[in-house]
Nucleic acid binder design. Sequence first.
RNA 1: GGGCCCAUAGCUCAGAUGGUAGAGCAUCGGACUUUUAAUCCGGCGGUCGCAGGUUCGAUCCCUGCUGGGCUCACCA
Length: 546
Amino acid sequence: MDENRIMQERRRKVEDLRQAGHHPYANDFEMCHEDVARALEVPVEDLPHEDGVSEDQPFYKVAGRLVAAAKFGKAAFLKIRYAGKELQIYIRKDILTESEFLAFKKCEVGDHVGAWGRLFQTRQGKPALRAERFAMITKAVRSLPEKFHGLKDPELRSRMRYVDLVANPEVADVFRKRAKLVSYLRRFMDDRAFVEVETPMMHPLIGGAAAKPFKTRHNALNLDLFLRIAPELYLKRLLVGGLERVYELGRCFRNEGLSRRHNPEFTMLEFYMAYATYQDLMSLTEELVAGAAQVVAGGLKLTVPNVEGEMVEVDFTPPWPKVSVLEATAAGLKKIDDQAPDAQALRDDAIVTAWIDDHDVAAQDDALATALSHAETWGDRIGALFDWFGEPALPVDRPVFVKDYPLAISPLSRKKDDDPVLVDRFELFVAGQELGNAFSELNDPADQRERFQRQVEKKSRGSDETMDYDEDYCRALEYGMPPAAGEGIGIDRLAMLLCGQRSIRDVILFPLLRPESGRTEKKATSKNDEQPTIKAKPPIRGTETP
RNA sequence: GGGCCCAUAGCUCAGAUGGUAGAGCAUCGGACUUUUAAUCCGGCGGUCGCAGGUUCGAUCCCUGCUGGGCUCACCA
């Protein structure tokens, strides 16, 4: 039976309902939003069997999507779902009107139906609502996926999320948890006197992170714009203006490939706190993430997907270990060469370059070779070595702060007062995955101008992921930005951890997909039943945490 | 963009060394007033992703294309 035939049958039922005086898309059924949940709260033992149902019992008015039906001709059990809860409705021909029973006969899995009645316990000891009234509310003309195996094709699941959510109820749970996480984050920030702001998503300049942007255009102003890769520079302008604690929870866009951990459009929590340091933010981050684990996942010891997609145990109980970039890198190098330079020796660029040459590490890995060939300074080289050797060697059973990054790869961070080749910065790693990036902010306008200048020079040498020189931002700093620390946390990745999802696509309702082609336009045979093509309008996507 | 794998009914999947194909669910008709993937009987349902090639014959082998998955690269 092809899909058109199924739809024709169902459209026929729509007409049958109309002719019998029913509205197949009614919106006048009186129900109570709380009743499905309330009905399920009543202990089954307290419910009478069907023959004991009396008019003294409370009346429930429920509605929902029909997700299962066991029909027997003159009776039936229907299972409806509303707000993630499922309730059985027991239908008997002899208590419904003839018209209601006809509506019941026309209903099938996928339709929205409603019933009024009292509760009883079935012979199997389950609660059920004995329908004294029944109504078809909305007829579905497409059939839901097969009930036992559901919808599995990953592409169809994200392309037709509306079906996925119905067919795989645990998917809805993930997104309810994500909503809980987001509201928790707002509460957390609001409780600490942070002001939530919304800054532009369309930027005339690229800034705040190292990434390739999406381009767009404003016609009336004849202006080329970029979708923001980070809100950082606008938020810090607000520090200048006197909003000493600000945060923004919103979308960023990075023009990159897709992976299990990257979506071109992603959500970031970014916040700035005047008169605080990156050390202060470590404690705040511990509090924030551990609190989120409690609220969303109900505990501090969680099973989460690691960077490889395997499920591992992580203990979020603060405080978390801290390790410097140089220490972490040295530890990683030791694993492949016990004569490798230690953290102190790594400070010497001659030793670093000699070790790289001696061990011919570039020859072992094309990507590392590329990274090293683009590394212009000691700091770039340390950054590359940390990525390849330090990161994989980080502890994975607890979250870990990696701190004190080289200046060269941190154009917006404050130099360490006692060690100016490094900056007051940390990144948070959980199960090998980068979750957040934070630093004490650079507020010396002259220094910032030099750093921008270096970015511009780098771009002129061919790099496509550098920041533009933001003159207005420098002007703002010249009015005096209070000392501050700021942080960005990748919310999609945090949601992956707390919801135990391996793929970022499983925590984003509508991840970017190629536009649909071919697969739904195959047949449009019947004359008045053209098969409408499903158009999934792909949102743009973004990627990483800062 | 590279590598590997995949595409059979609306959904989940079988299948034939190359002889044009099956199950369950869904759907339609019938029976059935306590089901939990209800059951029983009967029916409908396929350009085996698209286009070429080899062959007497291709859904199966080959090539290309399209779409997808994993992965690497790009990317914090």
